[in-house]
Design a protein around this nucleic acid. Structure first.
Lengths: 333, 333
DNA sequence: ATGAAAGCGCTAACAA
DNA sequence: TTGTTAGCGCTTTCAT
């Protein structure tokens, strides 16, 4: 293993000079700098991460707590993780992945000085991790907004705004009876913020527009979709438009509607709130596209700022653009 | 920050005793042990990861190189990553996620002593990373099998075996004209091992059974599916069974077949090679279930063994169980 | 503009 | 069974 001493010897300088060439924290003469860089190159030298962490109190690693459960939207998570790692590398950070053992994991990597900061996904309204995180006193950014962020920074997609925008789009086309096919029931029971915010944004927008709405959780799979459609139709007969916030249910939904002989958007309009662009579906769908890539990037940037000493916490909600892919139209008759 | 010295002082012992209590590398009297454990508990002590790495040459972190691209099967990756992190934690390891900057990333974390070993996914037949990895001289396990593993250990799902099993199942039902709807064309052009092995296993099995086969890459989405189906039917008129190795295309395929008025399995039998159990599809499908969880677990276990000093490299191919979910039947007539 | 040297917190000989 | 101590490789004061 080649150390900073080897480099120093090869370049005919002291170890500290090599260190300063690397960090740029001292002005170095051009001649010295190039000798050192040459030696680093020749020897293939890489600073020892542990030694560096020990001496500098910085690991250049951030922890990412991601829910790799089955019942969350795999596409969103994936896009998000990708943009986090990409952005992190732009800031010379590596990413440590934590998926389970919630509290214990947070404590371990934080108190053990494994990471400089934490990114925590899938925050629930009353998430118990918020308390743990504040007590840990490491820079932290939450992806999702709890009821009380306790001084932690948050980033999230504006689900309520997306629901309102969907309703606005549909009512402006003339729809008066609109239903949401939402996340599976357990998303609500575990107080996943996104589910509650879609519901609340939807109800508010429907009321404001003087329209009628039904909110219906939905299990993915053909059976779940059929059940939810039946429930919606009995609660709101003559429903003419669907807002779908459930990516896993989309394939079945389109197939079931086709089975029933219903045309989209002729017989029923469909808007989705989704991350992937639905290229694999039977037909493209008009959508509030969740900007997962932006959420990830911004989360990292906020974390970097806090690691750099920024003290003020903020909460940022990102709006979704409505992309018209032709699955909505004015209602029949 | 509480250090090992604080713990030692609180317990009235030396730092090394605390260290040995933690590592178990020395026999400690019950009395001392409990005093130390008490102090650790009281002070909430966690060893400093960097200091530990510096002194012991072990980081207890493994690097996971995962392709978070769009064109790979997100479900497989997800399951796989989950089983890797879970298994890693059982061995007291953390997981550092690398997704891009291929070679540079490998060098950085390896030479920089950030990780004790590497797990590299999505290995291609002539993958250039194999050379880099052998030169790095860190314990490494490949997920996927290159043409020449150069002494590295490999784990993978037995794609050729799965294709053979699918054909065997179908021919035993009486099918003589069988087609594969395979991964998108670019999987083959970039020499993704799994695509080539499915193709080769399929051709071999079809020949051995004296049946006829067509192999057709397939883009996901309704259009891609329609095109591929047309190609298959013109190449192999009267095709009565489909082997689908393309999870993203499944929703569209089922919808398109339904549109055409074809019943599964009455008019056409369908077998998939897939990771998720297809619970979100229009109907359950008989499948060679890719044991992504097992692959991840075994990969970690092999890596742990190598980190522990095991020298012999091995390649393990995991067979898939065929799970009958009723989407196959004897051909008509 | 550069060097010398004191740690950072831990592990693992070496001693007792 | 336990303690003492010499590093591990780097950063960063303090000197010059």
């Amino acid at each position: 293993m080649t150390t900073i001493m080897d480099v120093a010897a090869a370049a005919g300088v002291s170890a500290s000079t090599v260190s300063y060439v690397l960090s740029g924290k001292r002005t170095i003469s051009a001649a010295t700098r190039s000798r050192v860089e040459r030696a680093i190159e020749d020897l293939g030298y890489r600073p020892h991460a542990g030694a560096r962490a020990l001496a500098s109190n910085r690991t250049n690693v951030v922890g990412l707590v991601a829910p790799l459960r089955e019942d969350v939207n795999v596409n969103v998570i994936m896009q998000f993780v990708r943009s986090v790692t990409t952005t992190a590398r732009h800031h010379d950070l590596d990413v440590l992945l934590l998926t389970q053992e919630e509290d214990a994991g947070l404590r371990r990597v934080s108190s053990g000085s494994l990471v400089d900061g934490l990114l925590v996904m899938d925050i629930e309204a009353d998430d118990p991790r918020v308390d743990v995180l504040t007590s840990l006193d490491r820079p932290t950014v939450l992806i999702g907004v709890p009821d009380d962020p306790r001084g932690l920074s948050c980033v999230d997609f504006d689900f309520a705004g997306a629901a309102r925008a969907a309703v606005g789009h549909l009512t402006s086309l003339g729809h008066r009876r609109i239903a949401v096919l939402a996340s599976p029931p357990r998303s609500l029971t575990r107080h996943a913020g996104y589910a509650e915010r879609v519901r609340d944004g939807f109800r508010e927008a429907v009321r404001a527009a003087g329209a009628e709405g039904a909110y219906q959780p939905c299990e993915p799979g053909a059976e779940g979709v059929r059940r939810s459609l039946a429930a919606v139709r009995s609660e709101l007969p003559g429903v003419s438009a669907l807002v779908v916030h459930n990516e896993a249910a989309l394939p079945s939904l389109l197939a079931v509607l086709a089975e029933e002989g219903l045309d989209v958007p002729g017989d029923v309009s469909v808007v989705t709130i989704a991350a992937s662009e639905g290229a694999n579906l039977l037909r493209p769908l008009t959508s509030l596209d969740i900007p997962a890539l932006d959420v990830g990037r911004i989360a990292v940037e906020m974390l970097v700022a806090r690691i750099g000493g920024e003290r003020t916490a903020e909460t940022r909600l990102l709006a979704a653009p409505l992309v018209d892919r032709g699955s909505t139209a004015a209602p029949r008759g």
